[in-house]
Write a protein that binds this DNA or RNA. Structure first.
Length: 484
RNA sequence: GGCGACGUACCCAAGUGGCAAGGGAGAGGUCUGCAAAACCUUUAUUCAGCGGUUCGAAUCCGCUCGUCGCCUCCA
């Protein structure tokens, strides 16, 4: 049984979607006013993994991921840059897609933009007013928090305490400081849309209510995002949506933990953030994705070069073993020799079960990776026993299949080892081309054939200084790039 | 101040009632012309500390200490 931690209950729950044939999932996307940092990447990668695993598990999934293309930050930034909000949002949405593509994050089925759903939002706001949950005041419309009894149930806050702690806010239009804006009148020169309350633009939270109900219905299965969205964003969404429909808004609330730098949350306001582009200049995207999946999605995860180097070593170990397997499969030989395969066989038959039970336990990718590396070790152990013949080859092929299957779910380990090393070559800015490298290797082979070990060693040491490792094998010399 | 989370080896990190996964780093060994890779052995009688529940706890309960987050835009 798949178990999912629900922020609402604070517990892991059996995952039983409303409609088992169609899991409906809404994940808060980005506000397109700047390039994304690693925190955005974490959220995107985590929910991408969740979607892939649900599909692997046999569920159909409809995924909606919104793009906020109008808000205060966008207006501010557009003014600073002297461009329209459309142009600015368009630019950063484009950058976002480039980053996501590199990180192996698949597109959602539906990616609605706020500005394309103004009519739906106005309708939602109108209904909230009619039902008595919202009021208009001087061109703005506010949600009246005290009218919604369940307010605070997601973030475990109570209204009295919020009131006591509320920051003094100069806004005499609000009946209560806790009330939040559904529709905002626009100032001169700001982008605006016509509405029953005059020209204005939507408040931040309302787009998620209007767009999720349009594409997924008034009640759906999973709503996700970073833990910092729990309050006030998701709390406000619940209030609006449930006040509007009178139904339970979301069955499972899922929130990923933060990326930290020196133990502090990575955030724009603290200024301690690293953009995805910064990091991809130094690391292969698969390294970043593996790093993000190497801890449980709800745990905080500390960002540092040391951590990324470790993820790089992880992947390198994987591809090194894949190379060994491929070499073996290509030259398994005729003579049947299959001693000491018992442990590998046992693991091959239990592997899928282990992988699944890790992932079933609230998407425990850290544990799942542990199982993958257990299999890696067993494969290496088997290959060390110098097997040969078709039975051994079959065994390696099935091991390879299992690795590809589990890696496919996480969307890592999906390339060939050659591609991995070529990519490392680029990322580590190694001056040598692959052709030059191969020429040097064959030069060294001649020295080795002539048993000129001193010359061979000198070449090898020289390459090592450039970050290239040579491995002399039975079938020839393999090159790889020093990882970690 | 209120609410919440976390504290597992040198480092990262699973494990949430029944002998402490996995990776990296270190030490020794096997293999190798020498290396590298791989494998083997080794590195937590112990899970922040102190009490309690239990036949049995890293896991449940209480307290203490420490770290972080939310309470304002934030993935």
């Amino acid at each position: 049984m798949l178990k999912v931690y629900n922020t609402m209950s604070g517990e892991k729950e059996d995952f039983i979607p409303y409609d088992p044939d169609n899991v409906r999932m809404y994940v808060c996307g980005i506000t397109a006013y700047d390039v994304c940092h690693l925190g955005h990447a974490r959220s995107a990668v985590i929910f991408d993994m969740i979607k892939r695993y649900l599909r692997y598990r046999g569920f159909k999934v409809t995924h909606v991921r919104n793009i906020t293309d109008i808000d205060d930050k966008i207006i501010k930034r557009a003014n600073e840059e002297g461009v329209s909000t459309e142009a600015l949002a368009g630019k950063y949405t484009g950058e976002y897609y480039i980053d996501m593509e590199l990180l192996g994050v698949s597109r959602a089925e539906i990616e609605p933009k706020a500005t394309e759903h103004i009519a739906e939002m106005i309708e939602t706001v109108n209904t909230l007013i009619k039902k008595g949950y919202a009021y208009s005041a001087g061109g703005d419309v506010y949600f009246e928090v005290s009218k919604f009894p369940g307010y605070g149930k997601l973030s475990k806050k109570n209204i009295d305490e919020l009131m006591a702690g509320a920051r003094v806010e100069v806004n005499e239009k609000k009946r209560s400081p806790l009330d939040f804006v559904l529709w905002k009148s626009s100032k001169a020169g700001e982008p605006s849309w016509e509405s029953p309350w005059g020209p204005g633009r939507p408040g931040w939270h309302i787009e998620c209510t209007a767009m999720s109900s349009k594409y997924l219905g008034e009640s759906f299965d999973i709503h996700g995002g970073g833990a910092d969205l729990i309050f006030p964003h998701h709390e406000n969404e619940i209030a609006q949506s449930e006040a509007y429909s009178g139904k339970e808004f979301v069955k499972y609330w899922m929130h990923n933990g933060f990326i930290t730098v020196d133990k502090e949350k990575m955030s724009k306001s603290l200024g301690n953030f690293f953009t995805i582009k910064d990091i991809l200049a130094k690391y292969d995207p698969e390294v970043v994705r593996t790093f993000l999946l190497s801890a449980h999605y709800r745990s905080p995860i500390e960002f540092s070069d040391a951590q990324l180097n470790e993820a790089e070593s992880y992947i390198d170990r994987y591809y090194t073993t894949v190379t060994r397997m491929n070499d073996f499969i290509g030259s398994a030989g005729e003579k049947e020799k299959l001693s000491g395969a018992e442990e590998l066989k046992a693991l091959l038959s239990s592997f899928n079960e282990k992988f699944r039970s890790s992932m079933d336990d609230d998407f425990n990718t850290a544990s799942a990776l542990g199982h993958i590396f257990e299999l890696i070790r067993e494969i290496n152990r088997f290959l060390d026993s110098k097997p040969s013949g078709t039975a051994a080859k079959e065994l390696m092929l099935s091991a390879k299949g299992l690795l590809a299957e589990s890696g496919g779910v996480l969307n890592i380990f999906t390339r060939s080892s050659e591609e991995w090393y070529r990519s490392l070559m680029r990322v580590k800015k190694i001056k040598l081309s692959e052709e030059q490298l191969l020429a040097i290797i064959s030069e060294r082979q001649e020295a080795r054939a002539g048993r000129d070990w001193a010359a061979a060693d000198e070449i090898r040491n020289e390459l090592l200084e450039h970050g290239i490792i040579l491995e002399d094998r039975e079938g020839g010399t393999r090159w790889k790039i020093k990882a970690g």
